[in-house]
Simulated assay, not measured.
Amino acid sequence: MGDCSFGITGKDFVILASDMNAGRGIIKMKSDENKIRALGPHLAMAYGGETGDTEQFTDYVERNMRLYHIRNHNALLPPAASAWIRRQLAQSLRSRKPYAVNLLLGGFDTTTSLPHLYWIDYLGTKADIPYAAHGFGMYVALSTMDKWWFEGMPKEKGVELLRKCINEVQSRIVVQFNFNCILIDADGVHQLDLSASDPIADLSRAPEKAEVEVPNPIIAAPA
């Protein structure tokens, strides 16, 4: 079926959007698949690729991020998380069972108050860029991003740019997509409703599945 995902940074936020199709070959099996996974309080990724590989790899990444959070009482920051994820893909590429997964990793660095967006592909290539796309969308939307993106853009302009990109996909690509969208800022991960007239005004917390809470560590009783 192909995938389609977008990432846009602004003054103090990152927007991630991904299609919700799941299928095999020319058959679409469902159109409500969530392809965005929250990895921490201020970190999430949009992913695409082979269905089995994406599920296994994203579960592996999410649990290791959670383990780091539990052990260190601090979530991994976006630059460090991107380096670790890239390393895992690079190592799997040199194994007999490489992961066929492409990622857009977005996060907000609470130490510097800066947003980060990383383009990572199945070959372990990583780039820190202001806007990005994976899948079918990259063929028709990168020129739109290049024209309308500007440094320090506010959230409203970011949503407007995302809608321009989705309109390009809907009008120029045969495959029709439904999109899931989140926004990451200093307050955490938020679900964006693109069907609303003003999604920024209606920001709500992401679903419980997307929230990452640190469980209390288990302390063994003395013998």
Rank of each mutant, 00 (worst) to 15 (best):
I184P: 03
I184V: 00
I184C: 02
D185I: 11
D185M: 13
D185G: 13
D185P: 13
A186N: 15
D187K: 15
D187I: 07
G188V: 07
G188N: 10
G188P: 10
V189M: 02
V189H: 00
V189S: 02
V189I: 05
V189K: 03
V189Q: 00
H190W: 13
H190V: 06
H190Y: 13
H190N: 10
Q191W: 05
Q191V: 09
Q191K: 08
Q191H: 07
L192D: 05
L192E: 04
L192W: 01
L192R: 02
D193Q: 12
D193R: 05
D193G: 04
L194A: 01
L194I: 02
S195V: 11
S195M: 14
S195H: 12
A196W: 02
A196F: 06
A196Y: 06
A196K: 11
A196N: 13
S197W: 04
S197D: 15
S197M: 06
S197F: 06
S197I: 12
D198W: 12
P199L: 13
P199Q: 14
P199N: 15
I200N: 05
I200Q: 05
I200V: 15
I200W: 05
A201G: 13
A201R: 15
A201W: 06
D202Q: 14
D202Y: 06
D202T: 15
D202W: 01
S204N: 03
S204W: 01
S204H: 04
S204I: 04
S204T: 08
R205N: 00
R205D: 04
R205S: 01
R205E: 00
A206G: 12
A206I: 10
A206L: 10
A206V: 12
A206E: 10
P207Q: 03
P207K: 00
P207Y: 02
P207T: 03
E208A: 04
E208P: 03
E208M: 05
E208K: 00
E208I: 13
K209Q: 14
K209T: 15
K209G: 15
A210V: 07
A210Q: 12
A210R: 05
E211R: 14
E211M: 12
E211S: 12
V212K: 11
V212C: 11
E213V: 12
V214R: 07
V214C: 04
V214I: 09
P215F: 03
P215C: 01
N216R: 09
N216E: 13
N216H: 07
N216S: 10
N216K: 11
P217D: 08
P217N: 10
P217A: 08
P217W: 10
P217G: 08
P217T: 08
